[in-house]
Amino acid sequence: MTVLARERDSEGGATSSTGSTLLDTVLRFRALGLLVVLAALVAVTAAVNPRFLSGSSIRDILLAASITLLLATGMTVVVLTRGIDLSVGSVLGLSAFCTAWLLSENPGVSIPVAMLVGLGIGAVCGLFNGSVVHFGRVPPLVATLGTLYVFRGVVYFVAGGSRINASDMPAGFLDFGSARVLGVPYLILISLVVLALVAVFLSRYRAGRDMYALGSSPEAAELAGIPAGRRKLTAYVLCGALAGLGGVLYAARYGTVDASAGYAMELDIVAAVVVGGVAIFGGSGSVLGAALGAFLLTVISNALPVLNIDQFWQRAIVGALIVGAIAVDRLVALRVAESLRKKGSHVG
């Protein structure tokens, strides 16, 4: 029942059932709520310091958000299937270091090739995660907690104590990290294009909708003939590949890459996804919500220094946001279920 309602909902056809319209309203309300919080935060920060809304400041926020956005998009797909990928920070580090190293050794490599290499490295890591989860039947939390260590260990092996500096990389690649079209940075454009593609995939394609079904009820999905293994593998490969692409963007933007790139990033990504309204037990949520969550977190971390708030608060705020968001979601869900039951009894 919920599967059907959600599937219909994700098709955008809010025409038939009452459950669908209600869910729609709730999801919109949630996105709206995030937007309001975001707007309020920007307004307050800008009131304290008008430069927060200057062109260069907005550009900085967009640049910073682009990487979080990319990883949150991949994470959303995995979380929708009732999984989680805690290894994204390590995957990003591995891809960032490898592509930076590749570029420093072969300055002739073009940017698209570098991006493909990053995507490939990430996809391989994702495939490993997916295989351990699906074939090994290891719970995603445990599997990716393990690969968080393993992949980071591999980065340490590859990088040793070396650091690749901006001066080692071709200027064209670094320019790409800060260049813009019509004032909009390239990096955020890439992230937005990826976001749009994944959003379309999730809502218009069978494989995408299967992700929701898998997360809503694995048993029902299996009975309905959904190839759970292939879908799960797809989700983890996608998540890994996007983390890999994020690594390339990281290298381009920051110019300095060592073994610690992306360290402890997984927390921020999980936070963005959860705050964006994606249910941690799968089956519900959207990449757009996750994108809003990513923006909110980026704006917070950029606003704190401007507001002169002790930056020690940042982590505490991230934690409080995670707990707060899932608590609010739960309470809203309970309300919805209750009103659904009432409506149902009226109709019936």
Partner: peptide, 11 residues
């Protein structure tokens, strides 16, 4: 919850 409080308590 505990990923959240992991960040919260450390913060």
């Amino acid at each position: 919850v505990t990923i959240g409080t992991l960040a919260l308590y450390r913060g």
